[in-house]
Each structure stands twice: as structure tokens, then as C-alpha cells.
Design a protein around this nucleic acid. Structure first.
Lengths: 116, 116
DNA sequence: ACCAGTGTTCGACAGTCATCGTACAGTGCT
DNA sequence: AGCACTGTACGATGACTGTCGAACACTGGT
């Protein structure tokens, strides 16, 4: 069985739980971005094309457990979408959708911050 | 004894410490707004003209001590300016200055939030 | 079938934060 | 002088949160 199957691969892994930005309260969005590690994740994510990076590709000064935790928060805030491909979990920044819900907030986060 | 007298009548009270929005890191601004009580304070402040409200005029479900703490955080985030008048401490939302530093963030906070 | 790589979950821990009650300090008024 | 009002400072407390280590689960290749 070595066929190029992408639709029904009998994935025995629970799909990541997502929340659409439209269903995210403002407080949740602000809390998600009010963390240095998560800001770094979002910024690095924005520097690459969608689905280009898996979780392990991010260079943040925390272990895998904490990294997984941060991605869960970013998902529940409607900031990141994840898709499983093989053993990896590819990420995509939800630019348009999030910007439609919270106009300017993502641009603000991505912009170079002189006063840091 | 005092020779360092202020111009206006000898205020023996320490003036509130302010931080200009230009000197506020993004993380500090987001953290300041990532709190339900402070969001409420900012919104209520925006509904009245500048210097119209003293701290005790705000109807938030916390005691005076916590309220004072929240105002200190809002000051240090460049969101609120305070001025003493008599026993009261009048407040003003730093709309223009904060919006120049973090464009759109204040509008985002003040806008009615359907998904709450 | 084993194994290396990837990511999640669990328990535990330390640090931070929001809150309270109380005490304290100014201000203005009588 | 007192007194009422306003706001801050302090200490304590409970809750939340970011972090880790270890165990676990899944995938794909050897």
C-alpha cells in the first residue's frame, strides 16, 4: 500500500481543534498576543509562506511541551491553522481571517517594534 | 524650608508617574489591554470628555485598591493621563498619542464586540 | 517489527497577577 | 481643630500561567 492518498488516509490521530477568528472574543485575542514567545512565533510564521513550517522548525527558547501549549493557544485565538502531514504538523498564519475580525492587530504585531 | 516650590499651590502629593506611548513596548500595551476590568475602564473613559471622570466615577466590580492598581497599569502603558484636582484624580484617555504609537489598537478596543 | 522523529498530555513546580482588607496620606470644608 | 472624601501603599491570599520532565501516541522508513 504505497498509494498517493490524501483524502482517506485513516488518520488515527485527533485533528487539531481550531477556532475561527470570528468566534474569538477580543480579550482572548489580546491575551494570546500578550506573550513574548507567542509574538515571536507569529512573527516567524509571517516570514514564511503558508504551510512551510512545522512546529519543530520554530526557534523559541522553550521546550517542546511549552511550544505545543503555545500553539494550542494560538489556534484557539484564531491566529494559526494547523494541518497534519506525515508525522509533522504544518502551520499557517490566518492573516486575512484574523485581520477581518481584528483589523490592524496583526499588522501591529508584525511590525518592527523600535521600543522593545 | 522648601525652595523647590511648584508654581501652583504647594502640592504635597507625589504627581502620578506617566509613560508616553512612544516609550511603551508592544507587549506592555497588549498586556495592559488583556484584562476585562481595564478594557471596561478604557471604554467608559472613551464615552466621556477628557478630564471629566475621577477614579471613583468608574463602575467596575472591584474595590478601590484594585482600581488604583489598574489605573497605574494603564498609566504605565501610555493609555491614561491623570491630573490632580483637589482630592480627586481626573483622567484622560490618550487617544491621539496612543493611536500614533499603536495604530488601530485603541479603536479595536473601543469598538462594540459582538463575540463576547 | 523495530526505531527515530514529531507532537501531545500529564503532573508538578515556580512565578506572576488580580483581588481584598487595612492602614495611611492629601485635600477641602465646616 | 476636626471630619468626610479620595486615592495610594502595604501585606496576604488565591488563582492563573508558563515552564519543565517524563510518559505516551502516531507516522514513516529501515
Amino acid at each position: 500500500m504505497g498509494m498517493l492518498e490524501q483524502a482517506e488516509g485513516a488518520s488515527h490521530r485527533p485533528a487539531p481543534v481550531h477556532t475561527h477568528p470570528d468566534e474569538v472574543p477580543l480579550l482572548t485575542a489580546l491575551s494570546a498576543l500578550a506573550d513574548p514567545v507567542r509574538i515571536q512565533l507569529v512573527r516567524e510564521l509571517a516570514k514564511h509562506p503558508a504551510w512551510a513550517l512545522s512546529c519543530s522548525n520554530f526557534d523559541v527558547p522553550v521546550g517542546r511541551a511549552a511550544k505545543s501549549h503555545h500553539f494550542a493557544i494560538l489556534r484557539s485565538a484564531g491566529l494559526v491553522e494547523q494541518r497534519d502531514q506525515g508525522p509533522k504538523r504544518l502551520n499557517r498564519l490566518r492573516r486575512e481571517e484574523f485581520d477581518a475580525r481584528f483589523p490592524g492587530l496583526l499588522d501591529l504585531t508584525l511590525r518592527a517594534d523600535e521600543t522593545e
